[in-house]
Amino acid sequence: MAKTNKNEESNQEVDFSKRSQWLRAALLGANDGLLSTASLMMGVGAVRKDARTMVLAGIAGLVAGACSMAIGEFVSVYSQHDMAVAEMERKESRRGGPGEAVMKAEMESLPNPFQAAGASAMAFAVGAAVPLLPAAFIRAYRWRVAVVVAVSSAALLGFGGLGAYLGRAPYMKSCFRVLIGGWVAMAITFAVSKSFDVLGF
């Protein structure tokens, strides 16, 4: 009975490990979507104060970023898939036995490139929607910028906390590391765009 319980605990740990890897990948994708879109909107907002331009820049960033993430993830996972299949075929040829059932089971356990691409694109889009949606309903420039920063900051804290939970890291350090990194990215983008505008480019 004790042996059975140990096996069950081991299986649960393996399952959690696999889930945490997917969750961590999704979290990184959402964080990238949030930060790149918010920074893009802040950069455009530094030189154009109308809501339409700022929101269109955010939409373009969402679509372009999601497509880029999906294609990059698809190519990466497909390459890993091909290398794993080639390695399995080499092992099978060295064994010299049929082993088709074993090889089939191993191939089914490999990550699906299409699923990985879709998950990556979806995670990026969800993160990008965080600063984009509230900005679409605020006409006043100062309030729009303030809301984008505030909403993005809250989401960054949440992502940092979730990342700490998955990685079993200290919550405060993880949250503020992500938050300060996001602030730096938005500030740099805003400052660079503003400087080019002041110089007349």
Score class of each variant (00 low, 15 high):
Leu133Met: 13
Phe124Val: 03
Ser20Lys: 10
Gly43Asn: 00
Glu106Leu: 15
Val147Phe: 08
Arg144Leu: 11
Arg48Ser: 08
Val145Gln: 07
Arg90Trp: 07
Met122Val: 07
Arg168Asn: 14
Leu35Ile: 07
Ala46Gly: 08
Gly45Ile: 00
Ala26His: 08
Ile71Ala: 15
Gly200Asp: 09
Thr189Ala: 13
Ala185Val: 03
Lys173His: 15
Ala128Leu: 10
Ala125Gln: 00
Gly161Lys: 01
Val130Ile: 15
Phe196Val: 06
Val77Tyr: 08
Thr189Arg: 05
Gly33Ala: 06
Phe137Asn: 06
Ala140Trp: 12
Ile71Leu: 15
Glu92Asp: 10
Glu87Ala: 15
Ser76Trp: 01
Leu35Ser: 06
Gly182Tyr: 05
Glu9Asp: 15
Val85Thr: 14
Met172Arg: 14
Asp50Tyr: 05
Gly181Tyr: 12
Arg177Asp: 11
Gly45Glu: 05
Phe114Val: 10
Ala86Ile: 02
Phe176Ile: 00
Ile138Asn: 01
Glu9Gly: 12
Pro131Arg: 06
Glu13Ile: 10
Arg19Gly: 12
Ser174His: 03
Trp22Gln: 09
Asn11Thr: 04
Ala84Arg: 08
Arg52His: 13
Gly127Thr: 00
Gly163Ala: 05
Ala25Trp: 03
Ala46Ile: 07
Lys3Phe: 13
Gly167Glu: 03
Glu89Thr: 10
Ser10Phe: 08
Leu28Lys: 10
Leu133Phe: 13
Pro134Gln: 09
Pro170Gln: 08
Ala136Val: 08
Met88Glu: 05
Lys18Phe: 09
Val14Asn: 09
Ser79His: 08
Gly161Val: 00
Ile188Asp: 14
Ala121Trp: 12
Val63His: 01
Trp22Glu: 09
Met122Glu: 07
Glu106Met: 14
Lys194Pro: 00
Gly97Leu: 14
Arg177Glu: 14
Asn112Trp: 10
Leu34Gly: 01
Asn31Leu: 04
Ala84Tyr: 06
Ala125Val: 05
Ser174Leu: 01
Lys173Tyr: 15
Met41Trp: 02
Ala187His: 07
Pro170Glu: 09
Leu133Cys: 11
Leu62Ser: 01
Phe114Gly: 06
Gly163Pro: 02
Ala164His: 04
Phe201Gln: 04
Ser93Ala: 14
Glu89Arg: 12
Gly33Asn: 05
Pro98Gln: 03
Gly118Met: 12
Lys91Leu: 15
Ala125Phe: 03
Ala185Tyr: 00
Ala57Lys: 05
Val149Pro: 04
Val178Arg: 02
Gly163Gln: 06
Tyr165Thr: 12
Lys3Pro: 12
Arg139Cys: 07
Gly45Met: 04
Met107Glu: 03
Val147Arg: 00
Ser17Asp: 10
Gly118Lys: 12
Ser10Gly: 03
Asp32Ser: 05
Ala70Glu: 13
Ser20Asn: 13
Arg94Pro: 04
Thr189Pro: 05
Ser20Phe: 12
Met83Gly: 07
